[in-house]
Design a binder for these strands. Sequence first.
DNA 1: ACCCAGTCTGAAACTTGTTCTAGATTAGCG
DNA 2: CGCTAATCTAGAACAAGTTTCAGACTGGGT
Lengths: 212, 212
Amino acid sequence: MTTEPKSPTARAVPAGPSLPLTERQEARRRRILQATAELASRGGFDAVQMREVAEAAGVALGTLYRYFPSKIHLLVATMQDQLQRLHGTLRKRPPTDADPAARVAQTLMRAFRAMQREPHLADAMVRALTFADRSVSSEVDTVSRLTTTIILDAMGPAGPPTPEQLSAVRVIEHTWHSALITWLSGRASIAQVRIDIETVCRLIRLTTPQQA
Amino acid sequence: MTTEPKSPTARAVPAGPSLPLTERQEARRRRILQATAELASRGGFDAVQMREVAEAAGVALGTLYRYFPSKIHLLVATMQDQLQRLHGTLRKRPPTDADPAARVAQTLMRAFRAMQREPHLADAMVRALTFADRSVSSEVDTVSRLTTTIILDAMGPAGPPTPEQLSAVRVIEHTWHSALITWLSGRASIAQVRIDIETVCRLIRLTTPQQA
DNA sequence: ACCCAGTCTGAAACTTGTTCTAGATTAGCG
DNA sequence: CGCTAATCTAGAACAAGTTTCAGACTGGGT
């Protein structure tokens, strides 16, 4: 049920660059994402109400659902959007430390600071990401791949990462998401999140014994 | 808003052992948790519908809400219940390996196999756990402490764990939760979850250099 | 046995995510 | 330009979590 398109006749507007959206459609999509980010910044997950998003974006409710088939899809797409932005910023000023593990920790802490600037937005995006079920798995996967790319970029210019390194990166991602959640739900302090990130980043050192 | 009790006059039935529930109340609570587990086992998070839980438990909807102020509270309490059960089982047959890291990995894999037996139930509980907001933080914290205890138990009879070890345990918990989610949402295989668990458990070796 | 406060019940109401429908608008095409 | 299919809009309708309320019930103290 959840993995199939709901109707064989009505095709949804795809999120990827598959179908060439018209200019108006591209603009609509962008308005929707912007309205979502604004509402989320104000009041977090609960403040993103589909009717309000539609109204703020100047779009009918049905249209909103055509572009994003659920609130979760919408917020995951928002996260994708924001991550892309972050990735751009990071590219311009990459971390400086000599140690790959430290560079990754530095990068994640930079992302964490970005989240601290908009905690409500972070709340909405992260909650959606972890609450997503199979029907959103491809979109969540895209976000995950983006995150992986960011971490690998921070690790350094090394060629193809070893399977061991990929495992370490996955674990780092797990920790990153989960630590973020404990912070957002008020069960961990900012300091604790930093410690957790630094702790898990030690795993990288375990996988790069050929240190120069 | 979310952190305050809604009314100063009406006190809710507490989850902890604070107020001595009458026998009938204890029985009600148990019926509710059992009905929840059964519905969850059948169809996961979505199949746990408050009206159905109430009916299956032979309790009015309002009563259900008096015992558990939200669906999330209900499912987190269910997780607490199940974890307690697991803890009991683990106590009886502790892991055998000589290496603490391996013992922890073994323990988590045992818990993971339990989840594989009831994937829908696991889905409902884990989704609730990660979706929970501040209004549930104390209950989520209880679950977290229980999990920590289980991991520390597996690490061995060592006395007070060092702060470093506690960090490692927190990171292991993060990985455990997040890996579970990726498995439940179909984005990671069972094998991958095992690898992630084994990878993160190496952190324990980093914190116990005084190996005998 | 009687009474009070707190609890439970049944049912309706409200909120917000989601679906559906009928008609207006738009885009692409001959 | 005029046609056709796809898209968009406004609004109703539906589903499930949550709240509320009036009345019945229970337990403990007198």
